[in-house]
Simulated assay, not measured.
Amino acid sequence: MNDKKQPQPPAELDTPYGTAELWAALRPLTAARIGLPRTGASLAIPALLDFRLAHARARDAVGAALDADALQADLSLLLGQPALVCRSAATDRRTYLMRPDLGRQLDADSLALLQASGSRGGLAVVLADGLSAQATQRHALPVLEALLPLLQTQGWALAPVVLLHRGRVAAGDAVARALQAEAVLVLIGERPGLSSPDSLGAYITWAPGAATSDADRNCVSNVRPEGLAPHTAAAKIAWLLNQMRLQKRSGVALKDQMHQQLEAKSTTARHGP
């Protein structure tokens, strides 16, 4: 009788990081690439091709242009009037990507258009292509549809909505100053990720001026159906805007305590003061 133990095949499923079955159960719960299958020291072909496809989609999103005519038509139906179409000082997409400083400024014609609008006070809303025009194209309108009734309830006056080509977040400050708005909301396509080429960001600033910095803004990010749903983002934006008006501040000076306040109200409603 041979008592010598027979060599066992490598147990590929028993790793320090869990079994293949475990990863298969976890993958549907996140867009992150976790527990990727490997062939030797390299990624398996399907995982590698998926990565390359995601990278290509992110690159395409950065270079894509906004379909301004379609978005303008949708805005006209929603608002009852056309948006003001403006441009940054970046004359083309390549310049916009290479010169972020120009994307933060308005060109002369756009500045004159806004100043001639006769707007005074209220909230300025800017829709900008940013680094993912498809994010603005897909998600800005659903956010506005959910947000406008909330703003009306809060008593906000709305300055003319601006559709901005090749704009960066800080260009919203220039828009607000030209419209003499109290606050500005910039809905802009965020830098694409490998699992989110169409993520929309909402940047909100109280009393923007020439010296305004990113520290003076509040941000609601990853707005898309697979991230933060548009109606949820609209509720948070409305809460932040209301607090900005009450506290006369924004950015790092304004803490997002929306959920704490809602929980406190719910507790009071259940148990009494």
Results as ranks from 00 to 15, higher is better:
I188C: 02
I188F: 07
I188G: 02
G189V: 09
R191N: 06
R191M: 04
R191D: 09
R191G: 04
R191W: 04
P192H: 08
P192A: 07
P192N: 11
P192M: 05
G193L: 06
G193I: 01
G193K: 01
L194H: 07
L194P: 09
S195Q: 15
S195T: 14
S195D: 14
S195H: 15
S196H: 13
S196I: 02
S196Q: 08
S196C: 06
P197H: 14
P197R: 12
P197A: 15
P197G: 14
P197S: 15
D198V: 11
D198A: 15
D198N: 14
D198W: 11
D198C: 13
S199H: 06
L200T: 05
L200D: 03
L200V: 02
L200P: 03
L200Q: 05
L200F: 09
G201E: 03
G201W: 01
A202D: 02
A202M: 01
A202W: 02
Y203V: 05
Y203T: 00
Y203M: 08
Y203H: 13
I204W: 01
I204H: 04
T205C: 12
T205G: 11
T205D: 10
W206P: 00
W206L: 00
W206A: 09
W206K: 00
A207Q: 15
A207N: 15
A207L: 12
P208I: 04
P208T: 07
P208E: 06
G209H: 11
A211M: 05
A211N: 07
A211Q: 10
A211V: 02
A211E: 09
T212H: 13
S213P: 00
D214R: 00
D214F: 03
D214H: 13
D214I: 03
D214S: 03
A215L: 13
A215E: 11
A215K: 03
A215G: 12
D216H: 14
D216N: 15
D216W: 05
D216Q: 10
D216I: 06
R217G: 10
R217K: 15
N218V: 03
N218M: 07
N218S: 14
C219N: 14
C219D: 06
